[in-house]
């Protein structure tokens, strides 16, 4: 028998118990994520470049004022909006369509579901490489198809044309992201009570009326949260563009996150990279705050 603990020690043991289970997670997250986050924010106000190791120190807001005059930054900002908006809207619409299709039973539904969700499992770097190969006229069919239907004058690589290059990664991103929306929206669809549709059918509602009056309102909370999370994720998502175009040609596909990565990785200018990252963080926070307010006011209208 263990000795009976004194009351205060017993109380301490009870209070400490959950923290015992949490401590490995908390220590790792604090050391590997939160501490570097704080250091990273402090970098934004310093000159830290591994190329000029002796020219470092606190410089206040100088990184940010350089940023204001940096045409590449403004271009990346504009591209970030374009990239995020086009990717998320297309992923969402096509994902919703797929979820609605899969929500009805048909022969081979399970197999179809496994196949259409497959792109989500493909490692990003591989999706990026595969799509850049598909767009390459030497080994890829897409330029030849586009030329055949008259969209392109001749089969060339749309990734090397500044006017069209951003659509390459967007299409790859849509391919990769449809399953995410399909999975989450399908789960939400399957939790809508069936008797609602039966009642509507008795009342003679059309399919479109059912969709607008029953399906959409039920999906709305899930749509809001998935679109919000996905947009933040896509805005931060540098891998696809970095592998497919590296931000080129002529920065036509540079978004803020690829600009951060290339500044840190190729130029080793950590101060400037961190300043861009801080701007991106602020933009995302503003966006999240806006959406959460929207959600609140939607709920007020509801009740």
């Amino acid at each position: 028998m263990p000795p009976v603990a004194t009351p205060w020690r017993a109380r301490l043991a009870v209070a400490a118990e959950p923290w015992l289970y949490l401590s490995p997670s908390l220590i790792l997250i604090a050391l590997v994520m939160l501490l570097p986050l704080v250091i990273g924010i402090s970098y934004a106000f310093q000159a830290i470049s591994l190329m000029n190791p002796f020219d470092s120190g606190w410089i206040g807001l100088q990184n940010f004022s350089t940023l204001m005059d940096d045409a590449k930054f403004w271009k990346s900002l504009k591209n970030t909006f374009h990239w995020t908006l086009a990717s998320v809207v297309l992923q969402f619409l096509l994902g919703l369509g797929l979820a609605l299709l899969l929500n009805r039973g048909f022969h081979g539904r399970k197999l179809v579901q496994a196949l259409v969700f497959l792109p989500w499992a493909v490692p990003t770097f591989l999706s990026a490489l595969t799509w850049s190969w598909l767009f390459n006229p030497v080994i890829g069919p897409i330029p030849h198809w586009l030329a055949a239907v008259g969209i392109l004058s001749e089969p060339y690589n749309i990734l090397s044309d500044p006017d069209t290059a951003l659509w390459g990664p967007i299409i790859a991103n849509v391919w990769f992201g449809i399953p995410f929306f399909a999975i989450t929206l399908l789960a939400a669809l399957q939790s809508i009570p069936n008797d609602l549709y039966e009642a509507a059918a008795i009342d003679g509602a059309s399919a479109w009326q059912c969709f607008v009056k029953i399906t959409l309102p039920f999906l709305a909370p899930m749509i809001l949260i998935t679109v919000m999370l996905r947009a933040i994720w896509v805005a931060n998502f540098a891998d696809l563009i970095f592998v497919m175009t590296g931000g080129g040609p002529a920065n036509s596909t540079q978004i803020l996150s690829t600009y951060i990565f290339t500044t840190a990785f190729r130029k080793l200018d950590f101060g400037y990279a961190s300043a861009i990252a801080v701007v991106l963080l602020l933009l995302l926070l503003a966006y999240a705050a806006l959406l959460l307010r929207l959600r609140k006011s939607l709920k007020m209208v509801d009740s």
């Binding site: 590997v32 994520m33 501490l35 570097p36 986050l37 250091i39 990273g40 924010i41 970098y43 830290i48 933040i232 931060n236 540098a238 996150s257 951060i260 990565f261 840190a264 990785f265 950590f270 990279a273 961190s274 990252a277 801080v278 991106l280 963080l281 995302l284 999240a288």
Partner: peptide
Amino acid sequence: MFPLLMIIAPIY
């Protein structure tokens, strides 16, 4: 929520 790329320089 925050961009993971923010911590790529400090981690390095």
